[in-house]
Design a protein around this nucleic acid. Structure first.
Lengths: 212, 212
DNA sequence: ATGATTGGATACTAGGACTATCCAAGAAGG
DNA sequence: CCTTCTTGGATAGTCCTAGTATCCAATCAT
């Protein structure tokens, strides 16, 4: 199919698709001749994923590029690809800070991983974006004067573990390969608004139950 | 204290504080005379909360203004204030779409709330930002061709319910009043990166356990 | 043949979050 | 009291990101 049809079927305006091609979020089409290219269902699928990551996952274009590169990287085994893709996902505002709050936060986070027994997280992922995102959140709480120790964090860790089991169960429904990696990325990123929305609704519900 | 000291103690540059004052994210200081104002610890605290919402919670300035207005609104009782504050929080890109995917998503979401027995969510919150955020995530999954029915969503709902219980337990440690509302907002927003980070680390851990 | 369409290059725009400059009215030091 | 510095408010400018618009020569459809 041509650019026009790709645009038609995805609902994304042509200039935007051109922009994504420029930014290498979308691989170039198969060249028909010096002046025209052909796109396939894979491009359409990829384009929808790009839009999802950027608009629903609120991911910056540069981050989306890295994630998608990891999804497509054939050199990695299924598990590393899954890991690599999720690995690259977020980037909070590079905390960088080395104030006492950050130090406290880092210690709390490490204690938490220790108590949860997440060894993989400590070896390979201790400085992953996910870890840094978490620490930056904790540090901010500490700076605001809210206590934020392991005791408080532990229940969240346990819930996260449950969520991950659910996530992986869903991922395992897809046969290994690029499709599975893409499913994992979609599931990780697109279930975030779902999960956060559910949490807020649940808070309203629980708040109503207690004080209403 | 004067602007300069407020800036010093918060680490926020003076022009940025002026900007927040203009945007009414920070209440004006107590006027000393026609040309000068005095700020107190409350301003410092509020300023830190603003920064947290904007930088860690990635919240647009306009949204932060609404949330903070709800926190400060003395006309509301403690519970409504808590609700109002959390209510105003997010705003995904106004799905607005009325394609079949959105319809499917809405039905799945309503089924889910039904099965979870969240009556409050349906009465008052069915069209809340949280609800819309959730539906938009589900709709995107559907558009990408991933099945997304109640069966899949239910475990997430249950986890969310657990999270909310943990959240409310923490909120109840603070005595009712503005402080409690602020705590609720901080907890809701600032634990989001913590929670999402934990989920990703847990996924890595679980993935390693299954395939590693 | 001829007018529309294609894909690439380049330049432009809109919105958000700051940031810099200017200004007149205090405050501070001698 | 007079000069110099500092303060808070108003205005305008900057930077970045994500997306649009315009041009162009080469094709395609009729």
């Amino acid at each position: 199919m041509r650019l026009a049809e790709l645009s038609e079927r995805s609902g994304v305006p042509i200039p935007t698709i051109k922009y994504y091609l420029r930014e290498r979020l979308l691989p170039p089409g198969r060249r028909i001749n010096a002046r025209q290219s052909e796109y396939d269902e894979g491009h359409l699928r990829r384009l929808r994923l790009v839009r999802a990551l950027i608009q629903v996952g609120r991911m910056p274009v540069a981050t989306a590029r890295e994630v998608l590169a990891a999804v497509a990287d054939g050199d990695l085994g299924p598990h590393s690809r899954l890991g690599a893709a999720v690995w690259a996902i977020p980037d909070g505002p590079e905390s960088g800070e080395d104030d006492p709050a950050a130090e406290t936060a880092r210690r709390a986070a490490d204690d938490l991983l220790e108590q949860l027994g997440w060894t993989f997280g400590r070896e390979a992922g201790a400085r992953s974006p996910a870890y840094r995102m978490m620490v930056s959140g904790i540090a901010t709480m500490v700076r605001l004067g809210y206590p934020c120790d392991v005791g408080q964090l532990l229940p969240y860790g346990r819930s996260a573990a449950e969520l991950a089991v659910t996530d992986l169960d869903l991922v395992e429904r897809y046969e290994p390969g690029e499709g599975q990696v893409e499913a994992a990325v979609a599931l990780t990123v697109l279930y975030e608004p779902v999960l956060l929305g559910l949490r807020r609704l649940a808070q309203a519900e629980e708040s109503n139950r207690r004080f209403g």
